[in-house]
């Protein structure tokens, strides 16, 4: 497989990898680096790639594992990633998010979830994946994925309704 073939294979899900990485790592730069790293890993596997029935599922699994490792090593060295991406968000997207300030606290609520729930919300509600796919990426069974998804959605609902009723976000 040459470089062009490889790029055309990864193109359809490259953004999906990036969004998952960003959901977990929060910072755009870190997500970019992570995506890059995972792509290099995939490229080095070059010859074996054709054996896998879904390169996309594998890419997502590697991305997930890589990001979780990153988070683990950051935590081990007592560095907490607190990143708000004040300036580097895509201009259009940032504009629209600022237009509706409420959207940014929805983002915050999702980012405050535990990692596993974050991944599930990202895969299901944003990327619209089937439970089967999510289950294989997370190495869990489908029922467990459903339960965790429902739990995550309820946490989000609770925070949203609280904010809605009080008229302001508490944090």
């Amino acid at each position: 497989m040459n470089q062009n073939e490889f790029v055309s294979i990864i193109q359809p899900f490259k953004d999906k990898m990036f969004r998952l990485a960003k959901r977990l790592l929060v910072s755009t730069e870190e997500a970019e680096d992570a995506t890059q790293e995972v792509l290099v890993k995939l490229w080095n596997k070059n010859q074996e790639l054709k054996q896998f029935n879904s390169i996309e599922a594998m890419a997502m699994t590697i991305t997930k594992n890589y990001c979780l490792d990153q988070l683990k090593s950051k935590r081990a060295s007592n560095l907490k990633i607190v990143h708000n991406n004040y300036t580097d968000r895509e201009a259009g997207l940032q504009q629209r998010i600022e237009d509706q300030d409420t959207l940014s606290w929805v983002e915050k609520i999702i980012n405050d979830l535990p990692e596993q729930q974050k991944i599930i919300i990202q895969m299901r509600d944003i990327e619209n994946c089937e439970f089967e796919e999510i289950a294989s990426i997370l190495e869990m069974n489908e029922t467990a994925v459903r339960v965790a998804l429902s739990r995550a959605r309820k946490i989000i609902r609770e925070k949203i309704t609280n904010t809605h009723h009080y008229g302001l976000a508490k944090n």
């Binding site: 490889f6 790029v7 490259k14 970019e32 959207l103 990327e127």
Partner: peptide
Amino acid sequence: QFQPLFSYLQLAKEETAPNKTVL
């Protein structure tokens, strides 16, 4: 009250990776 949630979920899918993937 649920509108922001669903708008966000749709909007979040539009974000793309910065195009600098150099292998």
